[in-house]
């Protein structure tokens, strides 16, 4: 089995910032095979299209997944009204996750806004080898900082307006330490990813980025979620749901 569809129990629900929710979901069959960087595709009652949400945490022993998502529109708003004890209909685990290499001695994980959650499962794997740089609009949008600290990772926080942490974008602290890294992993807004990919390219550092696109089937059949990539030196529309969401930054045409 690569992925499945099922209805799973929500064990825990928390509101962790304004319009941002964390669900812990009991789904042993999914947790068993899920990897960092994959996503789940959530059905809503009233919409044809499911909503893709990245996996934030995987606990194989407990058979649980954690997802963290932001209310962006009517679909995610509907999902946010689910409660502990309700069931959630998911297609999961989907997509191609991050490349994990135990030989890496130092990795940098970069999350921008709601792109931060998938970095947590990586932090759990790399622990003290990881430096986590996250950036948010403002102090009231900051999430997951304590979770990152618990993994043993070094944690650097930035905000656009300077209300907490470093006043500025994640690229500032990142460009100072990029040379120390064996690998960089990032998820967030496209301008941020483009800058990070550029910095990694200049410094010849391995970089993987997780992309987002409007999506339908979630499994690579409908070809809806195209993203421009280079494959064998030719431009190719890859698909975020199956070829991604994680891509080698060198393959992505911004």
């Amino acid at each position: 089995m690569k992925y499945t569809q099922g209805k799973y129990l929500i064990l825990d629900k928390k509101s962790i910032a304004r319009e941002i929710y964390s669900f812990t979901i009991s789904c042993p069959e999914v947790a068993e095979i899920a990897t960092a960087g994959q996503f789940v595709h959530i059905r809503t009652g009233n919409f044809i299209l499911r909503r893709p949400v990245s996996i934030c945490g995987i606990d194989r022993q407990k058979g649980t997944l954690r997802i963290v998502f932001e209310v962006r529109g009517a679909g995610t708003e509907e999902i946010s009204r689910l409660n502990q004890g309700d069931v959630i209909d998911m297609l999961a685990p989907l997509g191609h996750g991050f490349t994990i290499n135990p030989d890496f001695k130092k990795v940098i994980l970069i999350g921008g806004g709601i792109g931060t959650p998938p970095m947590l499962s990586l932090a759990g794997i790399y622990g003290e080898k990881a430096t986590v740089i996250t950036g948010f609009r403002s102090a009231d949008a900051v999430i997951l900082q304590n979770d990152f600290r618990k993994t043993g990772a070094e944690v650097i926080l930035c905000t656009d307006d300077g209300t907490t942490g470093i006043h500025g974008f994640v690229t500032q602290p990142f460009s100072e330490i990029v040379n120390s890294a064996d690998a960089v992993y990032a998820c967030g807004p496209m301008p941020m990813l483009k800058n990070i990919a550029g910095i990694c390219n200049e410094n010849n550092v391995f970089c993987e980025i997780s992309l987002e696109e409007r999506m339908a089937c979630g499994i690579g059949a409908c070809l809806g979620c195209a993203c421009r990539t280079l494959r064998n030196d030719e431009e190719y529309f890859a698909h975020v749901c199956k070829d991604g969401p994680v891509f080698n930054a060198k393959e992505v045409i911004f």
């Binding site: 919409f47 044809i48 339908a216 979620c225 195209a226």
Partner: peptide
Amino acid sequence: RTGNLSPRIAETPSGMLNSVGLQ
């Protein structure tokens, strides 16, 4: 065929739009 640029998908009331472009 490479198909169209993204976004290729939009949701509509009780429906959806697509413009995959025969990739």
